[in-house]
Simulated assay, not measured.
Amino acid sequence: MYYAVVQQCVANLECVGRWLDKAEQFATDKKFDVAVLLNGRLSPDQKPFIYQVQSACDYVKGAAGWLSGQTPPRHPDTETTIAELRERIRKTVEFARSVPESQYAGAADRKMSFSWAPGKQLGGTDYLLQMTIPNVYFHLTTAYSVLRHNGIDIGKMDFLGTVNFVAV
């Protein structure tokens, strides 16, 4: 279960690359700086698009690392361009895909601690179900919504990515 869920989160994170392609094209066609979109937000008190992508990456690499018994790589939140965001996504995907399924053995018994919850821990299953999945999809949905709100032509299939249909 752990491996499959992390790989699904990775697949959805990879979709952001296509969103970025469309954002770049939109900005070029409309003749404005794409940084406007990267710093876009739905509400004044909400974090911008860049932060949403950074956070989705953090939760994906965190799950791959902590649930497989490793310390995930650290990526400083310094991205300001599409190229830098693409590199952040690439490094996250590369790390998560490098963890073999066998390394998730014992994930349910692993304990995760958080700086913002001193003296408390989550077991592997609760970490996956209560932290990883909701946070990855929260941040990806928010990033997607920022682009949609600003007129980027992305739809549900851009969010879902490849769906492996079989013929009947």
Rank of each mutant, 00 (worst) to 15 (best):
E101W: 04
K47N: 14
R88W: 06
G119S: 04
S113N: 02
A64V: 04
K91Q: 15
H139P: 02
W66D: 02
T92S: 12
P118V: 05
I50Y: 04
V146N: 10
G69W: 13
Q121E: 08
L85C: 09
A117S: 03
K31P: 00
A108K: 07
R86T: 11
V36A: 12
P48L: 08
V146D: 07
S68R: 10
D45I: 11
R90E: 13
K61E: 13
F49S: 13
H75R: 08
P118W: 05
G65W: 08
V99Y: 03
D33A: 00
L147Q: 10
G106Q: 06
S115H: 01
L129Y: 00
V136L: 01
I133S: 04
V93W: 00
E79G: 07
P134V: 05
S68K: 13
E84S: 11
G119F: 05
A105D: 09
P44G: 12
S55N: 13
G124I: 02
Q121Y: 02
L38G: 08
T80I: 09
S115V: 09
E79Q: 12
A64G: 13
G62H: 13
P134N: 04
E87I: 00
I50Q: 09
M131V: 12
F138L: 11
A108W: 01
R41H: 15
I82W: 01
L129M: 08
Y137S: 03
N135M: 06
T92E: 01
I133N: 02
E84T: 07
Q52S: 14
E94H: 09
C57Q: 12
Q70D: 14
A108N: 03
P76G: 09
V136D: 02
Q103F: 03
A143T: 08
V36Y: 15
T92D: 03
P100K: 11
F95C: 10
S68F: 13
Q54I: 01
S145H: 01
G62Y: 13
Q54D: 09
R97I: 11
L129I: 00
T125W: 01
A96I: 03
P100W: 02
K111D: 00
Y104N: 03
P48R: 10
K120F: 10
